[in-house]
Design a protein around this nucleic acid. Structure first.
Ligand code: MN
Ligand code: MN
Ligand code: ZN
Ligand code: ZN
Lengths: 141, 141
DNA sequence: CATCTAAATAGAAATGATTTTCAATTGGAG
DNA sequence: CTCCAATTGAAAATCATTTCTATTTAGATG
């Protein structure tokens, strides 16, 4: 995704385009795997002599809220983040070994809505669909 | 579920039917909502003068592994547990307000397998599908 | 019933990811 | 340039969960 695209999205979400926030986006954008806050922090400490880990945590969550970054809840229950070009609502297949993320085009939304809304009369606030496993590449080794 | 049914399932999973383990099952069985380890512990401290919180944590995970209890990852990212009579693979709609759990009969398994296995060549180890929201009852108030 | 062993437990301590606090800094609108 | 809300760093707190180890116990076996 282009840098200018980030800027527009940030502005529309009322997030300032601070150097650190942009750097976090840059790291995520360059990564081919999901990254944890700690990893992102360690990469960025090289570029900024001062950078607090809480800043990374805060920014990641803000970027998720803004819809720029997707959050992955690993089976180990730690949080990871991934910058996905695909802006449509979708889900992920994640490799627990190498960290690769692949889009799942299948979306359960309609069926879930049907069941929860029409049968139970409830209101869906969020849903998680995540598939964990080993990617083709990791399967070989 | 009948007590004797628990005993059989425990035995088949090589879990001893200890008084505390059975008590945990009893508490879960009596509950109409998902419960956290702490809550379960607090209820059981009345019955056992000695009962460690780690024991509750350990047992809950063992019971999940044994397939007797289902684990719920709340949007608040804490763990909750629920004893569901339905032993077939299925998912849940949980109310984030009152803790009610309702079965989602819809299962994405086939489609996910199709996509991950046949398109990506990966292997699914687990998948999470959970719907969070407000139940009919909580919606009214 | 007595014996025996792997499984289970208590209690205390450690863990470690995540969050909070608050004073100082800064982006960017006007 | 000014100004203020947003952002940040540093340190500390939180707090759910796990680990450790000595002790106890379920239940298999004879
Ligand atoms: Mn994606
Ligand atoms: Mn169920
Ligand atoms: Zn992989
Ligand atoms: Zn409810």
């Amino acid at each position: 995704m282009a840098q200018s695209s980030y800027l527009n999205e940030l502005k529309s979400k009322k997030l300032k385009a601070t150097p650190k926030r942009l750097a976090i986006l840059r790291v995520l954008s360059a990564a081919s795997v999901y990254l944890g806050p700690q990893e992102i922090w360690e990469q960025l400490k090289k570029d900024f002599k001062k950078l607090g880990l809480p800043t990374v945590y805060r920014n990641l969550e803000e970027l998720v809220d803004a819809g720029l970054v997707s959050r992955i809840i690993h089976p180990n229950r730690r949080l990871y983040y991934f910058l996905c070009e695909n802006r449509l609502q979708h889900h992920h297949f994640i490799c627990v070994q190498c960290g690769k993320v692949q889009d799942i085009s299948f979306c359960a939304e309609a069926q879930l809505l049907q069941e929860v809304d029409q049968i139970y009369g409830g209101k869906i606030l969020s849903h998680t669909l995540q598939v964990n496993g080993l990617c083709r590449c990791c399967l070989k080794h």
